[in-house]
Design a protein around this nucleic acid. Structure first.
Lengths: 259, 259
DNA sequence: TAAATTTGTGTAATAATTACAAAAACCGAA
DNA sequence: TTCGGTTTTTGTAATTATTACACAAATTTA
């Protein structure tokens, strides 16, 4: 047998795969590549590849993504490891799955790279991907796990902002939540939760004159002062995420993403 | 070099490690084993070992736990994969970490098995383990990740009951939550949340006679009818977890573990 | 029988959520 | 310039949930 790496005990091969989510301003999409080589030649699959000995699995997932789509510097988190015995026809291959989040800026810049092994790449709406049973390997199962993970994490961490550009409208933010959680929110209530203006309530006390009790602002957005243009209705304000304020409020239990 | 397994490309070795949590009725403990072989001979470490080619990582973690402690049939979940380059002095070793939960019944039955590679095993309070910087490999980091994972999951899934026997008191259940979340709860409110008696509120409507509105029971515990004995105060009722009811209520959004 | 201790239940005040309405800002057509 | 259409933003009343705390009940011991 060809090869020069000899071990006393057998070892599985290790790969990473990445479920890349991209928000186009309206809905959630997943990045798939079309395989140019067997197995599963011509099938659509997740970007990913074999681990090198001088890189961590995180680095491997980042590298493969950059090699196959040209995108770097994105938010990435581990999902879990998939180790079913016959998940790869080439033999024992175990994969560590990641998910990545891309904002609309990155979204439009995805381009196919490499030569024979990837013939095409493209974005597909999540619902379409979930309905497609022809994906390579166990990638359908990995995608389902990714969505489940995403749903869990968006309830606790500010990952929604990773799917948006630095500046965004509240409508866009709400759409991100609604498409991930498959649930509609009341427009007004969502707005208040995010902007969280300092509500001042009138307090009446015996003997003292009524006073305005200043309650602190519990919002996590910064008003940029700008508004969107080119719309034929009231233009939405443009906000950015106040990461510092967010951490303060979370530490004080004044803010949660529990929806 | 000795060995008969030859590959074209180099492959890391794969292990699983397991952070076993055990509740002794009062506090949370972690199961550690003392290594009988190098590297880290005599150091305390997590139970675990090398993956075999005919088992999944889940099966590996289960098998290693059974081999080293004699315990089987416990609740187990994947934490994540650790792949730092020099985490193991023997070379490139990647580990998939799991956590397991044991109830007091299992807890007392842990026994050391095997020969040279494990010289001792024992339970240690979580705080002590976290303060101990002499653990083998990166096991300290894995334990920290396990606790963080446990904290996340107890907020959404009924894993607290995996740390208790089938029958338990509400006090014990509360202690599980308090030791994992490092937070005290009001006794009365915790009690009501778990037992969730059907509160009936009086409703007055114009023209009709006041009626009792029957609100449905939102608790997840079953009263066994028994009480604890041998205590010198009011004996606590003994409950069990109503898993079926729990799923009904969660689907209806009538119950969450959001604390 | 009273004290000590812990479990179990009730309640009133406060806070959060929800559903919905009103106001404001803009465009474009009349 | 005014008005309808549309969408964002603010306001509010009703409901529901949470919190803090008090009281009643059950058991042993003195």
């Amino acid at each position: 047998m060809e090869g020069e790496f000899i071990y006393e005990y057998p070892r599985p091969a290790l790969t990473t795969d990445c479920v890349v989510f991209g928000f186009d301003g309206e809905k959630l999409n997943i990045l798939l590549i079309q395989r140019g080589v067997d197995p599963y030649k011509n099938s659509w699959a997740l970007p990913g590849g074999f681990l090198k000995m001088d890189e961590t699995t995180e680095e491997c997932a980042t590298r493969e993504l950059e090699e196959e789509t040209g995108i770097s510097g994105v938010f990435m988190r581990q999902i879990r490891t998939f180790s079913t015995l016959n998940r790869d026809p080439r033999g024992r291959v175990i994969t560590i799955a990641y998910y990545a989040l891309m904002n609309p800026h990155h979204f439009s810049r995805v381009s196919v790279r490499g030569g024979d092994d990837v013939t095409d790449a493209g974005w597909f709406p999540v619902e379409n991907v979930l309905a497609d049973t022809s994906l390579a390997f166990d990638h359908h199962e990995i995608i389902e796990a990714a969505i489940e993970k995403l749903r869990q994490e968006i309830r606790h961490y500010p990952i929604a902002f990773e799917l948006l550009d630095t500046y965004f409208t509240i409508k866009q933010l709400q759409t991100v939540y609604e498409s991930i959680l498959s649930k509609k929110f009341d427009r007004g209530n969502f707005h208040k939760k995010m902007v969280g203006r300092a509500e001042s309530s009138t307090v009446d006390e015996k003997g003292t004159k009524p006073r305005k009790e200043q309650r602190k602002n519990t919002g996590v957005l910064i008003d940029s002062g700008e508004v969107v243009s080119g719309v034929k209705h009231k233009p939405a304000k443009i906000y950015s995420f106040d990461r510092v304020r967010f951490h303060e409020l979370v530490n004080n239990a004044d803010f949660t993403f529990d929806f």
